[in-house]
Each structure stands twice: as structure tokens, then as C-alpha cells.
Design a protein around this nucleic acid. Structure first.
Lengths: 204, 204
DNA sequence: ATATTTGTTAACCAAATGGTTAGACTTTAT
DNA sequence: ATAAAGTCTAACCATTTGGTTAACAAATAT
């Protein structure tokens, strides 16, 4: 397959192709030749623009992570109530993931492969900060809106319930004996089911 | 490092070494030489006993999955109430995962890498079956013990809340700014926190 | 005792893989 | 017009990697 988007710069084409291959095959499974083929250019170009596989990978990872971070910041930094945030996040995040099915596994997996890597990310601007969310949870508990719960635990619960269906898709599909269509419907329903589930648990 | 357990058969030593390497590096990242080194034997032995990397990997995967399956069956097939099952599972599963930290990521990741693979597993005896659990949930809803909820959704919620903290450990550690020790304490607390969280949500 | 099967190793091999180089073509600056 | 800088390719290279082979040792059967 040859370059179809003549407008795009070669550097961008490479990044797009690399995102594609790295996300579906991971760092170890990806092949430079395959990325070059997908970008419709010579393999030497990859090194011309990105020097090495490692650096190309890091460029991809940062790019992909920068798609995810705003999604997390939604729940952390707007001014709506916790309940609204949960409903909003659960809906938006699920929609987002349905459009980027490889993303969560890619992020989670590569962070596990190289734990030091996240340290680099933490210094990036836009790395999600949980502080405001925690303060807000504590406030709403004091105000009697929510039952007592540790804000970190709640945060992880929200993430878990939203992310896991994408991470564990093949396993969950098999366990619940759903095909692709019914799994999609199942996940679509979670946009509200999960929000209700969480709120029922924490609301006074 | 050389073979320390002289009792074990070579075949077993290879499997143990392979479990170790495959779980931490994945199929693509693992090297046959590294497995041979860890097992303290010649690389040719790997092929003598397991023919190819692929077959060795499959042997490892089946072996690892057979550790996980009983954990899932706990919640599915005993005779206690749903509430008891959730408390029991949340406690046991977390303990189990703390002892096998690479396991969830390995399973999830390799299933994503090769979706057909789970079909082979489904035919294995001992593959978890969710039927009984679903019937029980529906009964307790009818009996008025639980508020209405789709049993599949509940099942996935339980899995999500228990598995995600291990899958997403590096990410969650970074987001909640915890070090290894405090993360372990955090996960330890979840043994009861998660059970409470779920039960608060579903109990009438 | 001796033939046979099983277990094990060192050395080897072909293919794949990340990376380099020398040169050609294009665009930009002078 | 031409020099310089930037972009691109084909061919090449060294290393890594999964896998094989031939010969040797050890256990087992006859």
C-alpha cells in the first residue's frame, strides 16, 4: 500500500504508521520494515527522522499518551459535582475507547514493560493530577453528599470499571459468551450502567 | 545461575524458566537463549522437549491459565450467597495476585495479541462457566435481596475492580503518587473496600 | 556384555532485523 | 546558474535469533 495522503509530511506519515503498528503489536512485536511499508517509504527514512526504533517508539508513546491524558483530566479538573463528573467521564471515556480500541492495552502494557518510562511522562505538562478531585471528594463527604470513601480508592474504582472492559475484552467476551456485536452493545450500555453502579455505592 | 533443584525433571525446569521469562517479557520479548540460561541447560534442550518457541509458549500459557481459572471458579460455583461470594473472591483473588504480579498482564496481553487463542482454551476442562452465577444473581434479585442489575455487568464489575489494580499498577502508582510500599498497602485495603463498594451498590 | 533408546551439548546455519552508507534527486539560498 | 542543504533510495552490514545437526554420554532393555 502506497502513500495516499500526499499532503502529509513524511515525518507525520511515519508517526501515523508507527502508531498503528506499535499499538497493535507492541514495541517487541513491531518491525521497522512493516512500519516503513505502511508509511509507503524506505526503511532508512525511519532512521533519518527518528534515529532509532526506541526513539520512534517513544515519540509514538508520548503522542498516544497525550490523547489519553485529556480524557483523565476531564474528571479531575472541571467544576461539576462528583456525580456529574462520574456520569460525564463514564460516558465520554467509553466513547473514546470504542474509537481507539488498542490504546488502553498499549499504554498499560508498555508501562509494565518499562516502569521507569512513566517517570519521564510525569514531568510532561498535562500529566493528570488527582489533587483537585481528591479535595472535592473529601468536601462532598464532609458536606454529607457522599458516604465516606477514600478518594484514591474511588478514583481507581472509576478507572477500573471504565478501562477494564477494553483491556480484558477477549477474556470477558469468552467468559460471557458474547460475539463482537453483543459485546459492543454490552459496552455501550455500560456508559450509564457503570455510572449508576458507582453512584449507588457512594451517594448518601 | 545454574540448576539448583536437582530433583526436578529437565522438562519441568524448562517450563518453570519459560514461565518466568514469558510472563515478564511476553512472547515477542522473550528469548529462547534466556530461557535456557535460566533453566541452566543448553538451548537445544528447549527444542528437544517442546519443539518450538510457539509450542513452549503455549505450554506456559495453558499452565498459567490453569492457575487463574480456579480463582474465577471460586466465585462462580460454590453455594454461598452473592454477598459472601463477592467478599470471598475479592479477598482471595487479591491475595493470589499479590503472589503472582505478572500473571494478569501476561494473560490479558497475550489474549489480545492472539484472539483466536482463547478458543482453544474454552474447550479445556475447567474453563470458567458463568451460568450458575448468573442464575443466582437473578434469583436474589427476584427474592428482593439485590437491586436489579444485569448479571454480566455485575460480573465484569467484580472482575474489573479486582484485576485492574494489578494490570494498571504503574499508571495508578503514578497517578496516585504512591511508592511500592504504600501501593501494596493500598491494594491490601482493597480486599475489603472493594467488596463493600460492590455490595453497597447492589444490596437492597 | 552389548545393543538401543533417551538425554545432553557444542557448533553450526539461514533468516530476520535494526541500523548504516554512498549516492542521487529536490528544494532553497546566494 | 550554482552551491548548499535537505530528502530519499538501494544495497549493504553486523548481530541476533529460532532452530538444526552430529556426536557423545547415560540410562535401559535384551
Amino acid at each position: 500500500m502506497v502513500n495516499m495522503k500526499k499532503e502529509e509530511s513524511t515525518e507525520q506519515q511515519i508517526l501515523e504508521a508507527a502508531k498503528n503498528i506499535f499499538q497493535s503489536k507492541g514495541m517487541d512485536g513491531a518491525r521497522m520494515q512493516e512500519i516503513a511499508d505502511k508509511a509507503g517509504i524506505n526503511k532508512a527514512m525511519l532512521h533519518y527522522y527518528y534515529r532509532s526504533k526506541q526513539l520512534l517508539f517513544e515519540a509514538v508513546f508520548k503522542n498516544v499518551f497525550s490523547l489519553l491524558a485529556p480524557q483523565l483530566n476531564t474528571i479531575l479538573n472541571d467544576d461539576s459535582s462528583i456525580e456529574e463528573k462520574i456520569r460525564h467521564f463514564t460516558n465520554d471515556y467509553t466513547s473514546f475507547m470504542m474509537k481507539h480500541p488498542y490504546l488502553p492495552n498499549f499504554i498499560i502494557n508498555e508501562l509494565n514493560r518499562n516502569e521507569d518510562f512513566i517517570i519521564k511522562l510525569k514531568n510532561t505538562t498535562g500529566f493528570p493530577n488527582i489533587k483537585k478531585f481528591k479535595a472535592q471528594v473529601d468536601n462532598e463527604i464532609k458536606a454529607g453528599v457522599l458516604s465516606p470513601i477514600d478518594a484514591d480508592q474511588l478514583f481507581v474504582n472509576i478507572l477500573a470499571l471504565n478501562i477494564f472492559p477494553f483491556l480484558g475484552k477477549p477474556l470477558v467476551k469468552a467468559l460471557t459468551t458474547k460475539d463482537e456485536t453483543s459485546y459492543m452493545a454490552f459496552v455501550e450500555k455500560r456508559k450509564i450502567e457503570v455510572a449508576n453502579f458507582i453512584i449507588q455505592s457512594i451517594k448518601k
